[in-house]
Nucleic acid binder design. Structure first.
Lengths: 195, 195
DNA sequence: GGGATTTTGCATCAGTCGCTACAAAATTTT
DNA sequence: AAAATTTTGTAGCGACTGATGCAAAATCCC
């Protein structure tokens, strides 16, 4: 089947993901990306076919690794409330980890016109957020049916609020972050909306 | 005094602001900016001294015009609660207005590393947000002292939550916006945190 | 009107952007 | 071993980036 690939695809993707995460889509130049991935343009355009597609693959890789932990956190703990709180705790852990390339979650960072203007990227981001929302609604609904949440608690209404607030959190962390302040703020928020 | 300026500075700034608002800081090229402002590079570098400074001036102009309405809304109405609700209504009006260059508030759009990496810009953004927070705290505090808000309501704790949520709102609007959904979501949020 | 000062248009700077063409190197199939 | 196929390194594409140099044009002070 021809010459064998010399570089480790997964590792290159891993490195690329970290750079995209750190510098954003347009903020990452192809040359910086290649240097970070440790490959040449030929290898790059051979496997990933364009910068846009590379970003998409990196986003998928990000979701499969980093973001997967958030999903697990949501379903950890005995109640939906504890799950959501674990999720936010997971977010703070991410912010505290010095190895994190950027304070902003890579998915949250993709909520920019530079990314959303690209149809394929937009579709993927849209889909991922919808999926997370559905998961959260399910978790809440089953808790409600079990009597763990009041009858006037409407998962369909609350979930968008939680998601929206979380988007804001990532952005605010960019401006200034302090774990105690954020923990307090999150608690005020979650307690307020009944979680 | 030399030759008189041929272009209208304020109008040029107005046009520049709209373009920056629409396309972001790095997303706006100098040539597009000049074409939109209707001036040449000489005039540009003569009055505004760099792209960075131009963005700062446009941000100030934005705050003095668009953002000022938000501040007024906060202090409109008889209670702090009605003020905050008026503020969010103002946000939705902005999203509905077809003349709005971008769904994202220009200040919110500045919560990006591409902007915050520039010290002067960061300082300004930081300062503006702090000011808005202080204003909101004051409004809440006076209401609380007047007995219009419960004793366990802590302005210092709630305000960051509101600001954070609003940041999230702008971002989510970028993904998909529908006034009824947003109105409902905002109501759930504000009611939840006691407003 | 002459000199000083400022604004303006135009050409251009060096550097970067994403991407591609092309041939040498390496591996499989025949 | 020869042909076919794939990967890799390098050089370069045209277009664009923010910014500058310079001289002509326009205005003010004397």
């Amino acid at each position: 089947m021809g010459r064998t690939r010399e570089f480790d695809y997964t590792e290159a993707l891993e490195r690329g993901t970290r750079l995209f995460w750190q510098s954003g889509y347009e903020g990452t130049s192809l040359r910086d990306l290649l240097r970070e991935m440790g490959i040449g343009e030929s290898s790059f355009y051979n496997t990933l076919k364009s910068k846009k597609n590379a970003y998409l693959e990196c986003l998928k890789h990000y979701n499969a690794t980093v973001k997967a932990r958030h999903g697990e956190a949501l379903f950890s703990g005995p109640t939906a409330s504890s799950g959501v709180r674990a999720l936010f705790c997971c977010v703070l852990d991410c912010l505290d980890d010095p190895a994190t390339p950027s304070p902003v979650c890579m998915m949250a960072a993709s909520l920019t016109s530079e990314v959303l203007d690209e149809a394929e990227l937009r579709d993927y981001v849209q889909d991922q957020i919808t999926t997370l929302a559905r998961l959260m609604v399910e978790r809440f609904t089953s808790d409600k049916e079990a009597g763990l949440l009041p009858n006037d608690f409407e998962p369909e209404s609350v979930v968008p609020v939680v998601l929206t607030y979380m988007q804001g959190l990532w952005r605010m962390a960019l401006l200034s972050y302090s774990r105690p302040h954020f923990e307090r703020q999150i608690d005020v928020f979650l307690t307020g909306i009944g979680l």
